[in-house]
Each structure stands twice: as C-alpha cells, then as structure tokens.
C-alpha cells in the first residue's frame, strides 16, 4: 500500500511516554523480567480556531488518560489554538493554511505512521467528545479482530440532541453503510475513533477521502476487510460552533456522500 509520505521513516524526538513503548522495552527490562509489550498510542486532534475549547479538551484527556502523547493538528487557525495546545504540553503540527478536517486528520495519521505508533485515537477539539470514553475505545480496539472502533452517540444511549435534518442525514447514511457493511452502523459521522496500525496506514494512504471521512469511508474500509466495531460513547453538544455540514454545505454533503458511496462500490477494493 502506498503511503503518501515521500520520506523514509525516522525516529523523532517525543515527549516522555508514561507507558513502556515497544522500542524501549529491551532497554528497560532485564532478561529475567517478563516482556510486556505496550502498544504505542497517540491521540490525534484536528483543530481549527478552537483556542477557547482546546485547553479544556487537553486537560480532560490528560486527566482521564495520563501519559498518552497528544498531537494537535492546527489547521491554519487564525486564533491562539497553537499557543494554547503548546501550553498544555501537546505536540502541535501547524498547517500553513486551513485545509479542511480530512486533510488535518490525515496529517496526524501520516505522523503516526512515520513515528511507528500502533494505535491512534482521533477526537474532536470542540469538547464534543468525552475524554472519559478514550479508555473504552482503547480497551475495545486492543481486542482480537478489531481494526477500527467507532464511538457512537446513538448506540444504547439516546441522550444526544441534534437537529431533525442532521439526525435524518445520519440515519440515512448510517442505514446505507449498514446495508453495504453487513453490520449495524449507527453513527457514520463520528470523529471519535480508535484505530490499529493497519487502519492507520490505510488512512495515511491516498485512499482517504480528501474532505471528510464518513459513511463512504466506513464502507471502503469494510470492503477492504477491516474489522469495524461501534461502542457507545457520550457526546456533548458542540459549545460554540456550527456543524461542518451546515447551510449550503448540507446540499454538497448529501450529494458528495451519495456520489462517493456509489463510486466506492464501483471501484475495485484497494489492497490493504
């Protein structure tokens, strides 16, 4: 599988990890001690003008999942997102201009591939995702036969409030994804996910949808043989932001999603 990066893999300086990482195992333990390989985990957060929210999000993550490195992709923000993220000891990659959610997210996956992370948790920067659920996602993704674990706001919980149109869209594309995946997909738009190495490499390749991953990408991953599982998570209403798909973008979103699903089904499944 072709990864977008033209660079050879190099080891970058990173923050001191709290868990024993795969590379460090040999140095840390003597031969008599049992070798317990801990996965190298990274949390990726794409952020655009989230200076007001990202501090609280990072605090929440560091409280709930201490020691896991956090990478913020500052997607050309014009506010103090980068500064706040750095103040909270996150690694920050700043893109030179606003490139969109999908591009920012994929940048994080490219970084994860380059630095040999074995598990990635992706989440939003607006405080919608509850950091307390990170451990649920991690627990689930580390099981056998799991490549992608999606945090669903609709699974077993009906607390999430959204507009009727948005809910109808999620329901429609969720049902379409369920139909083609042969399993129930309740929340195809969820950006709260945990992914294993194979899935990370797949996202870092040019198979990834350029604007935003949705039901089309879930169908593609399913067709490529990735094992997908949903787990219930708590999602809060976004504090001060409109959805990515508001206004005239809704029409484009619906059109794009139908077209993308259609051509995904027409294409030959790419090799993993």
């Amino acid at each position: 599988m072709k990864t977008l990066s033209p660079f050879k893999s190099q080891t970058l300086p990173q923050r001191e990890p709290a868990v024993i990482q795969e590379d460090d195992t040999a140095k840390t333990f003597s031969c008599q001690e049992p070798l317990i390989k801990q996965p190298k985990i990274l949390i990726i957060i794409p952020a655009y003008n989230e200076g007001k929210n990202i501090g609280a999000v990072l605090n929440g993550i560091q409280k709930q999942s201490p020691g896991i490195p956090i990478l913020v992709i500052n997607d050309g923000s014009s506010d103090n997102t980068e500064k706040v993220a750095l103040e909270h000891n996150a690694e920050v990659i700043s893109l030179p201009y606003n490139s969109g959610y999908g591009v920012a997210l994929q940048t994080g996956f490219l970084y994860a591939v380059k630095n040999n992370f074995s598990i990635v948790v992706q989440m939003d920067s607006d405080g919608q995702h509850d950091p307390a659920n990170i451990k649920d996602l991690l627990e689930e993704v580390q099981k056998e036969n799991r490549d992608v674990v999606i945090g669903s706001r609709f699974l077993n919980r009906a607390s999430y409030k959204t507009s009727l149109a948005r809910h109808a869209g999620m329901l429609l594309f969720g049902n379409i994804a369920s139909l083609f995946c042969g399993q129930k997909v309740t929340d195809p738009t969820s950006g709260f996910q945990a992914l294993k190495r194979r899935a990370i490499e797949f996202i870092a390749s040019d198979n990834y949808p350029p604007d935003y991953p949705d039901a089309d990408f879930i169908i593609l991953m399913n067709r490529c043989g990735f094992k997908i599982k949903e787990v219930p998570v708590t999602m809060h209403a976004s504090p001060n932001k409109e959805s990515m798909h508001h206004g005239h973008k809704t029409i484009y979103y619906v059109f794009k999603m139908f077209l993308s699903i259609f051509v995904t089904l027409l294409r030959k499944s790419p090799k993993r």
Binding site: E91, S94, S99, Q106, T107, Y111, K114
Partner: peptide, 14 residues
Amino acid sequence: MRTLTQHVGILDHE
C-alpha cells in the same frame, strides 16, 4: 497541494 501542505506541516514540526 494537499500532500505538500501536510508535509510542510510535519517538516516544520520536526
């Protein structure tokens, strides 16, 4: 351009 943007961001970080 998207690919270049991503690599510029990663290289700048490095």
